[in-house]
Design a protein around this nucleic acid. Structure first.
Ligand SMILES: [Zn+2]
Ligand SMILES: [Zn+2]
Ligand SMILES: [Zn+2]
Ligand SMILES: [Zn+2]
Lengths: 159, 159
DNA sequence: TCGTGAATTGTGATAATATAACAGAGGGCG
DNA sequence: CGCCCTCTGTTATATTATCACAATTCACGA
């Protein structure tokens, strides 16, 4: 999987493809892709941005799909648990996975200006951190990697 | 700086040195290393473990050093802002910096069993993430890198 | 030494994020 | 139908973090 999210792309297709990929995957795995779950995924796909659980909840409320925190959190838990979305710890917020289906150790590039989030691949078991860990005998199982900075277009705007 | 925290070491010295390093650094920079701030740093140094703000606050309360959340948060903000401690986003908790004074891009190895935290160095601008970021023109300014897994002694215990 | 402004602390209130607990709805299947 | 299982609705509560403002302490120069 390559970094994406900062590049121009057909975003309508991006949403449709994201939803239908997850739909297919749920069928495969016998998971229930219910209306709330589908809608939450759509909301996350809308902007390549991280959304807080309460942002999601507000939208659901407007649409009559649920009004209490557990509704949003349950849908998000489902999506995260099955790898269809990720939590950005730094922001206490969530993004749709850019490549649902493949299991991976995601890394994120977060623009501090426009809040867009791109997903990259960076298995931490390779590289310097992996070496340091191996050196002390630490076994890495999962990793939170969240890089913050300026995306290309915000660098342009700043100049 | 090397990973530390999982290896045996003279921990009394570890605390003393940590505190006096910060003390010296504050003198250099003209910062006020007040009793609350000092005590919070000592608490963080106590276990090479991440402590939540309210854990800290409980200890402060017992000791009559303050009883409301802002007291703990302000001390933690001070320590984090000046690089004497770090926040572990994954845990909403804080650890003392293993090498106060040097500015760095820290990475953490977090044992999911015993909750110990070791600090490693892993500048994300190198390596695969750096390449991915460069490829899309993203400029990394800071990074949260938190690897979770099993420390050497917990691997031993599990077997 | 004393006055002055800035930094720090005390305190009550509240915001933002997240979970617990349990009752109800719905569907597949004997 | 009756049972089991998953998902949903709802109330309440836990956990993490910040705001606002008054009181105090500190650094620093007059
Ligand atoms: Zn898109
Ligand atoms: Zn941007
Ligand atoms: Zn130590
Ligand atoms: Zn351990």
């Amino acid at each position: 999987m390559e970094t994406t999210g900062f590049e121009r792309h057909d975003h309508g297709a991006c949403i449709r493809d994201g939803v239908s990929a997850v739909d297919a995957r749920c069928r495969e795995l016998g998971l229930q892709f219910t209306p709330v779950r589908r809608r939450v995924l759509e909301l996350l796909l809308e902007g390549h941005r991280a959304l807080g659980a309460y942002d999601i909840l507000d939208r659901l409320r407007e649409e009559g799909l649920g009004s209490q925190p557990p509704v949003a959190y349950r849908a998000l838990d489902f999506l995260v648990k099955h790898g269809f979305a990720h939590k950005i710890e730094r922001l206490n917020a969530f993004v749709a996975c850019a490549c649902p289906g493949e299991s991976h150790m995601p890394a994120f590039l977060i623009c501090r200006q426009c809040d867009k989030v791109a997903e990259a691949e960076a298995d931490m078991r390779d590289g310097r951190l992996g070496e340091s860990a191996a050196a002390v005998g630490f076994r890495i199982e999962r990793a939170v990697v969240e890089a913050e900075g300026l995306c290309p277009s915000c660098q342009g705007a700043a100049a």
